[in-house]
Simulated assay, not measured.
Amino acid sequence: MTLAYRTHYGQAFVGDSRDLLRGLPDDSVNLVITSPPFALLRKKEYGNAEQHEYVDWLAEFGALVFQKLTPDGSFVIDIGGAYERGVPVRSLYPFRVLLKFVDEIGFSLAEEFYWHNPSKLPSPIEWVNKRKIRTKDSVNTVWWLSKTAWPKANVANVLTPYSERMKKLIEDPAKFYTPKVRPSGHDIGAGFGKDNGGAIPPNLLSFPNSESNGRYMAGCKATGEKGHPARFPGRLPEFFIRFLTDPGDTVLDIFAGSNTTGEVAEREGRRWLAFEERRDYIAASAFRFADEGTDLVDLHRRIMAGEKHVFEQRQSRMAL
C-alpha cells in the first residue's frame, strides 16, 4: 500500500483498490461510500469500463467490500445512468449491478436514494438538445446496500430544517390543522405538531454540483492541474456519513478521485481511507487539507514524486 499523505483522521493511498482492500482486516470498515466510474458509452479520461463489462468489473470490488464491512456497516454507491448505443433507450446496468450485489454477493438493499443535481447541463446532446425527444438526465441512482438487514443508521442526525409554515403550525397546531384520519387511513393524532428538531428527509436528495472555488480548485489552478472531471458535491457524502456512522467510525472511498469523501469525513471526526489508482488525482486531492500559505506547487510536486506528506498544522485544528 503506497501512502500519499495522511491527516489527523485519515490516510490517502495510491493503488488498485482491489489490492488495497485485500490488505484491510475483515469487518473493519463502517461505511464505504463511493462514486465509481460510470458505464458510459464514451470513454472518459478517468477510465470507465464498457457497459457489457461493467457489472462484473464492479462486482470484484463489491465482493471485497462485503468482507471488509462491519456487520452493521453500509456500502453506498452513487451510480449514474446511461443510454444504449445509438437509440434513446436507457441502459439497465445500474439495476443489473444491484441484482448482482444482492443475489450473488449477499448485500441487502437498505434503501434506494436519488441524487438530483439541479445544476447539471442538458444531456445527452443527441436526444435532448438536437432531437428534443428526451428530458435532461439530472438524477443519479444511489444504492444504499448493507451487510445485514440491520445496518447502523440514525435519521435524527440528518433532519432538515422545518419550513416557515411548519414552524407556525408547531407553535399553534390547533390554529392551522385539525387532526383527523386521512384518506390513506393514516391517523394524524394529537401528537401532530410536535417539534422534533427538524423534518425527516426524503430519499430524493437535491444538491447542486457547481463548486468553482475552494481549496481544491485553487490548488488545481495554482499547479495547472485540470482537477477530477467527475467530482460529487460534499453534501452528498456528508449526508450518508452523518446518517450511517458515528464519530470515530471508519469511512472508506474506493474510487477517491479528488477525495471529497475524505475532506468531509475529516470535518465530521470520522477516520477515513481514500484509495485511488491515479497518483495525479491523489496529489491534487491533498489541496483540500492544505493550510493557507502552503506552497501548493511544492506540495503537489513532492506527492507526485512519491514523497509521503503529513498535514501536521491542520491536524491540530481539525481535531478540536
Score class of each variant (00 low, 15 high):
T245Q: 04
F75T: 11
L205T: 03
P118N: 08
T223M: 00
F275S: 11
F239Q: 05
D291A: 15
N203M: 02
E307S: 13
V264L: 06
I188C: 06
Y54C: 10
Q11A: 15
E45M: 11
P94F: 12
W115Q: 11
G227M: 06
M304E: 12
G191V: 05
P161T: 14
L31G: 08
D280V: 12
S285P: 11
A149W: 03
A153M: 08
L121S: 14
A284H: 09
P233A: 10
Q51W: 03
V89Y: 05
V32Y: 02
I79E: 13
D172G: 00
G306F: 09
N48G: 05
L205M: 07
K226R: 13
H309E: 14
R42W: 00
W150A: 14
Y46I: 12
V139H: 14
V55N: 14
E45F: 09
L64K: 11
G106M: 04
D253Y: 05
D246C: 00
Y177C: 02
F289E: 13
G189M: 05
N209P: 02
N129E: 07
Y5Q: 08
G257C: 07
E307Y: 08
L31T: 00
I133H: 10
L21C: 12
F101Q: 14
T250N: 01
H116Y: 14
Y5V: 03
P94E: 10
N117Y: 13
I200R: 01
E225I: 01
R267D: 09
V29E: 13
M166C: 05
F61P: 04
Q315G: 14
R235W: 00
A174T: 02
V158D: 09
N30W: 01
L99T: 01
R271M: 04
S206G: 05
K152Y: 15
M318R: 02
H228P: 04
A274Y: 13
R42V: 07
F207H: 02
T245Y: 04
H300L: 01
E53M: 00
P122E: 03
T260N: 04
A256D: 08
G227E: 07
F275E: 09
I200G: 00
A12V: 15
I33R: 03
T141K: 08
V97T: 11
G86N: 15
S316M: 07
D172I: 06
I241F: 06
D27W: 04
L296I: 05
P36Y: 03
I170F: 06
W144I: 05
K68H: 11
T34D: 13
Y54L: 02
S210L: 09
R215L: 10
R242S: 13
F289N: 13
I125V: 12
R279W: 07
W143S: 10
D27Y: 07
H116C: 11
P36M: 01
L159C: 08
Y114W: 12
N213S: 15
T261E: 01
E277W: 03
A4E: 00
V158E: 10
L252E: 09
T178L: 00
R215V: 01
S28I: 09
Y9D: 14
K44W: 08
R182S: 10
S212C: 08
I254Q: 10
